[in-house]
Write a protein that binds this DNA or RNA. Structure first.
Length: 927
RNA sequence: GCCUGGGUGGCGGAAUUGGUAGACGCGCAGGACUUAAAAUCCUGUGGUCAUUACGACCGUGCGGGUUCGAUUCCCGCCCUAGGUACCA
């Protein structure tokens, strides 16, 4: 029998599916293990060879855990709501549900070919009403919750209302939008409408006028993580700031817990670092600067309270509401002009154009609370409305932005910090500010002479004692904008009564996505759902017309897999208590500031409500690297249809053109295939070298336009899924990005055939029942040991090497012992499930190999009788000496010194020292 | 600018606590089998010099340092990928 992967793979994939080998149920007899892949968005392009990388790794790990006796949950589903399907719907009129369904079918077909151990009975799709029922449900829960800072968790809004009724809000410690205090009497006297309006300031899901990222091209608002460099992440369209009434999630309430939780999870440092920066905690002081001849008090946030004696002006963000109050009549015209000019500049321009200094004086003066000095209040767009209080105290001597501003407008600069080893100097001569975080204070009243650190501490204390402000921690993390003016997403379980939002009854869920005639905004500018007929709750109250964003459906899907068919709960407490949380999560690092933060927030919220048992969703996270494309080029003589082989291009003026990598082998172009590839090349002529056309190559992103996309189906057809799986792992370390080069795949294919041939001689299964030799056992057990360690370290590339070494050695030993080969295939089964299942059955086993047990290695087989000691002189290895492994350092030293080769190297020199590391090395130091 | 990875043959990469640098695979060269090809197997393959055998020297981005010994540890740079940025 030959290794016929096509037949074998088809047969076992069918068997595994028919017999539900990968279906999993709660089993208290076994420890559980939950392995999760980031579920894909099913795009129209299908999978390329880069996509399954993480899936293969997680598949190996979950199969390994299963062989180790764990009850493994390893599900898969689809993040199926999203913009591309909707954009396609706008162009073609095709319902996004239809294209999504088609794309899912194609994904499934491609995934099935690779032979994954998914429990498909647990599949979820975010666009399925049975699924988004629970997305809507969670939103309702957030709407009816507030964040109590006193208990540091989310609580039902009823507890807050009860407090209002009893004593107003003076003593309530909540994360909320800024508002004034009221008493119980006030509250009780408010109308229903007023009360609801007020509660929105506390709800974790709230509707408010906020500055949002509006993307006109997509016709929707976007969350901060969906905007990159002022452009939308999907499509790269410009994004502008706009004030709109939108739903938001009060994720900022969880900023500190999101930060603290990072210490308790096993994620890569880089992802933790990205999240830390995104949360952006800074400790500082909020200080009050009264304004002269006005009742306005400027509130500013600073991390450098020590520099308050160096403040020479104040700056407001152009969007600040204080601008209107502080602009003096004589400055009004200029201020208006400035505000207009700023508005016209897009966010992107503002960011790109950091160097240009602009601003305008308000005419008002603030009073420094520590020095009582009068300082001018300016307006400039280098101060952001969205961070801190939208106003700053400017310390031009020690902040580069303030310095530039001061120089541009001729404002005074006062030095207050002298870096260590330097002396105070004339700021008029400075070319730049001294942004020093260490040094000694000067010109600073009661903190003069202190170090920066001491000064910050003392100033903070002084401010608090004299009620000039308070110590405060600020976070960069903003609340997540949760509305999208799009069609293909979850409808909100919200209706409006007298203009105020209410949630539908939980028993009315799910609110189904209605049909519309077009997937475009209405003529009056309402979102697409405005086109739905009778889009009203109980035929009376209009529903919310926005839909939820992409991250809504992906924030709790890992819970749903635990209990996917439950129609009365997100997840039963029985299932949640058993599966708890994800033990191993695999996916791309590009989700660091989006999905991976939202999921943690969502999980913590459900935890606060007592719905789930863990407050972190993903214990261990591995980010697989990108698989890059390896592009090939041909070189066309400019203005001709003549193509020059790569080695000869220096003799011609040529143009580099991408060529389809599928018609190039080992960088040699298939000339006939090239002519057939495109009409324009049918008459192409070639200048060859050694009868071959050699192509150039480069590593680039894998993309259609570069003709370097390699399809996993094709690989499965040509080499088989087992070869593809092994080769993807063999390419290099899982977490690094590396180029795909189909050329190397032959190596692993040969390996599988060699393995097969250990079992089959001339097509006949010939296994020996004899006991294994010492060498054979050593080969086997060192492989088992290595594979176990490698899998546990996610070092799958070295596992594949180890298997190759093992098979090479067994081939040398002409080993066909059942005792050896049977254990070897169990060890290999997680990597190459089809061939190992086939061999396992062919040697007489009746149950699937995945109910076998991963072999234990036996240390005693690994012991060497003798060691080949490398003997080095001054650190350079010169020769090796075989010495009994039991020999101690002294004996080794004696043997080495007596050896004639040693004499050759020591001749004419004296031995200064001899180092013997038993079992490792001998080093002789010569003088 | 800041943060986090990475830099080793023609290529992908290995060397797990400092101990034989280049495992394994691709590619390349030569050979066996074959009418021939494919497949398979065997041998060689970091560089330079020397080839009469033995070899010698250099070599893990660059420059220093610690050490008997450094791809590995320390200091200072360079390049590169990703993240992030008027965040006060």
């Amino acid at each position: 029998m030959e290794y016929n992967f096509k037949e074998i793979e088809k047969k076992w994939q069918q068997y595994w599916a028919d017999n539900k080998i990968y279906a999993v149920e709660i089993n208290h007899q076994k420890p559980k293990y939950y392995v999760l892949d980031m579920f894909p968005y099913p795009s129209g392009a299908g999978l390329h060879v880069g996509h399954p990388l993480g899936y293969i790794a997680s598949d190996i790990y979950s199969r390994y855990k299963r062989l180790k006796g764990f009850n493994v949950l390893h599900p898969m589903g689809y993040d199926a709501f999203g913009l591309p399907a909707e954009q396609y719907a706008i162009q073609t009129g095709q319902h996004p549900a239809v294209t999504t369904e088609e794309n899912i079918a194609r994904y499934r077909q491609q995934l099935d070919k690779i032979g994954f151990a998914y429990d498909w009975d647990r599949e979820v799709r975010t666009c399925d009403a049975h699924y988004y029922h629970w997305t809507q449900w969670a939103f309702i829960k957030m709407f009816h919750s507030w964040y109590n800072k006193a208990t540091d968790k989310a609580e039902p809004i009823e507890t807050l209302i009860a407090t209002f009724v009893r004593e107003g809000n003076a003593n309530v410690k909540a994360v909320c939008s800024q508002l004034t205090t009221f008493t119980a009497n006030h509250w009780n006297a408010y109308s229903e409408k007023e009360q609801q309006q007020l509660l929105l300031n506390y709800r974790l899901a709230y509707l408010a006028d906020t500055m949002v990222n509006w993307c006109p091209a997509l016709g929707t608002v976007l969350a901060n993580d969906e905007v990159k460099d002022g452009l939308s992440e999907r499509g790269g369209h410009p994004v502008v700031q706009k004030e709109m009434k939108q739903w938001s999630l009060r994720i900022s309430a969880y900023a500190q817990r999101l930060l603290d939780g990072l210490d308790r999870i096993d994620w890569s440092e880089s992802i933790k670092e990205i999240q830390k920066n995104w949360i952006g905690r800074s400790e500082g002081a909020e200080m009050l600067f009264p304004v002269k001849d006005s009742d306005v008090v400027l509130e500013i946030f600073t991390t450098r309270a020590d520099t308050v004696f160096g403040v020479t002006f104040m700056v407001l963000a152009p969007e600040s509401e204080l601008v209107a109050k502080l602009t003096k009549p004589e400055m009004q015209a200029q201020v208006n002009e400035y505000l207009e000019a700023t508005k016209l500049r897009s966010e992107r321009e503002r960011m790109a154009d950091v160097k240009t200094v602009s601003g305008v004086f308000t005419g008002s003066y603030a009073i420094n609370p520590l020095t009582s000095e009068q300082i001018p209040v300016w307006i400039s767009d280098y101060v952001l409305a969205g961070y801190g209080t939208g106003a700053i105290m400017a310390v031009p001597a020690h902040d580069s932005r303030d310095f530039k501003f001061a120089r541009h407008f001729g404002l005074p600069i006062t030095q207050v910090v002298v870096p260590e080893g330097e002396t105070e100097s004339d700021t008029a001569l400075w070319n730049e500010s001294i942004d020093s975080k260490t040094g000694t204070m000067v010109n600073s009243g009661f903190i003069t002479g202190l170090t920066v650190i001491e000064a910050i501490k003392k100033t903070k204390t002084y401010i608090e004692q004299n009620k000039l402000g308070k110590v405060k921690v600020n976070y960069r993390l903003r609340d997540a904008i949760f509305s999208r003016q799009r069609y293909w997403g979850e409808p909100f379980p919200i209706f409006y009564k007298e203009g105020l939002p209410y949630t539908v009854a939980e028993t009315d869920l799910p609110i189904l996505l209605p049909d519309v005639d077009k997937y475009l905004p209405t003529e009056t500018g309402e979102p697409p759902l405005g086109r739905a007929t009778n889009w009203k709750y109980k035929d009376t109250y209009p529903y919310e017309m926005s839909t939820m964003p992409g991250f809504a459906g992906s924030s709790a899907y890992y819970f749903r897999y635990m209990d996917p068919k439950n129609s009365s709960e997100l997840v039963s407490s029985e299932a949640n208590k058993y599966w708890k949380s994800v033990d191993l999560y695999l996916g791309g690092s590009e989700h660091a500031t989006g999905h991976l933060i939202y999921s943690r927030f969502w999980c913590k919220f459900l935890f606060d409500l007592g719905i789930v048992t863990e407050d972190e969703p993903f214990k261990k996270l591995i980010n697989q690297g990108m698989i890059q494309g390896r592009s090939n080029f041909v070189y066309r003589k400019v203005g001709t249809n003549v193509f020059v082989s790569k080695g000869l291009i220096s003799q011609h003026e040529v143009q580099e053109i991408h060529v389809d990598v599928n018609i190039v082998k080992n960088d040699e172009l298939d000339v006939e295939a090239f002519k057939a590839w495109r009409q324009e090349y049918a008459q192409a002529e070639f200048i060859l070298e050694n009868g071959k056309y050699i192509c150039g190559w480069a590593v680039e992103k894998m993309s259609k336009s570069k003709y370097n996309v390699v399809n996993p189906d094709l690989m499965c057809d040509q080499y088989g899924a087992d070869t593809l799986r092994l080769y993807e792992m063999f390419l290099g370390p899982l977490e690094l990005s590396k180029p795909w080069d189909t050329n190397g795949i032959d190596g692993v294919y040969k390996f599988l055939r060699k393995l097969w041939n250990l079992f089959y001689k001339d097509g006949v299964l010939t296994l020996s029942p004899e006991a294994a030799t010492k060498d054979e056992l050593k080969t086997l057990h060192k492989t088992i040991k290595k594979i176990k360690e490698d899998i546990e370290n996610f070092s799958f590339n070295t596992s594949v090497s180890a298997f190759m070494i093992c098979v090479n050695e067994l081939q040398q030993q002409k080993c066909n012992k059942r005792a050896v080969l049977e254990q070897l295939i169990v060890t290999l089964a997680p990597f190459a499930p089809h061939i190992t299942e086939e061999l396992w059955r062919n040697i007489g086993n009746t149950d699937t190999i995945f109910n076998a047990t991963f072999p234990e290695f036996n240390e005693s087989y690994l012991k060497e009788d003798s060691i080949h000691y490398p003997v080095s002189f001054n650190g350079k290895m010169r020769f090796k000496l075989e010495i009994d492994s039991a020999a101690d350092a002294k004996t080794v030293e004696k043997i080495v010194l007596e050896n004639e080769q040693t004499g050759k190297w020591t001749e004419g020199k004296s031995i200064a020292k001899i180092i013997v590391v038993p079992g490792k090395i001998v080093n002789i130091v010569l003088k």
